[in-house]
C-alpha cells in the first residue's frame, strides 16, 4: 500500500516537472513587426531595424512581437517600446492594444528599447532630424 502511494507521488512529481519544463520551453521572442497606422505629412521611416522622423511629426503604429516559432506572441505578453532619450524621440502608448505613437521631439539620435515581459530584447536605432526648409 505504502509502496503504491510512493509510486503515485513519484509519478505526479515527474508529471509536474515535465509540465514545468514544457512551460519553460515556450518559444521566446524572436522579432517585432511594425505596421504604420497613420499617414504622416512628411516622409518617415519606421521599421524594426530603424526609425527616422522629422522633429514634430507623429506616427501611429501597431507593433506585434513574434516568437521563435513564427507565431504572434500571446496578448498577455507585455510589449513596451521605451525610448532611451525622450528629448529626441518619445513613444507613448495609444488606446488600442499594442498601438503606440512615436513622435520626434528634438534633433538627435537615440534608440528604442523593445521590452517583452519587461525584459529588453533588442534596440531600434532612431534618428530625429529638423524639418527641411520649404
Amino acid at each position: 500500500m505504502k509502496t503504491r502511494d510512493l509510486g503515485s507521488a513519484a509519478a505526479l512529481a515527474i508529471l509536474g516537472l515535465l509540465a514545468a519544463g514544457l512551460a519553460g520551453c515556450a518559444p521566446g521572442f524572436d522579432h517585432l513587426e511594425i505596421k504604420i497606422d497613420t499617414l504622416p505629412p512628411l516622409a518617415v521611416s519606421v521599421d524594426p531595424t530603424n526609425v527616422e522622423l522629422p522633429v514634430g511629426i507623429a506616427v501611429g503604429i501597431t507593433a506585434t512581437p513574434f516568437d521563435t516559432s513564427g507565431d504572434k506572441m500571446d496578448s498577455d505578453v507585455v510589449l513596451n517600446l521605451v525610448p532611451k532619450n525622450q528629448k529626441v524621440l518619445a513613444v507613448e502608448t495609444s488606446l488600442d492594444d499594442r498601438s503606440f505613437v512615436l513622435f520626434g521631439v528634438g534633433p538627435g539620435t537615440t534608440s528604442i528599447s523593445v521590452q517583452v515581459d519587461h525584459e529588453s530584447r533588442t534596440d531600434i536605432p532612431a534618428t530625429v532630424k529638423l524639418q527641411p526648409m520649404e
Partner: peptide, 17 residues
C-alpha cells in the same frame, strides 16, 4: 513647419493627434 498636437488622457496615453 508641420507639427503634431497630441491629445493625452490622464494616464499619458495618446488618444489622438
Amino acid at each position: 513647419g508641420i507639427a503634431a498636437m497630441l491629445a493625452k488622457n490622464n494616464g499619458g496615453v495618446v488618444a489622438d493627434f
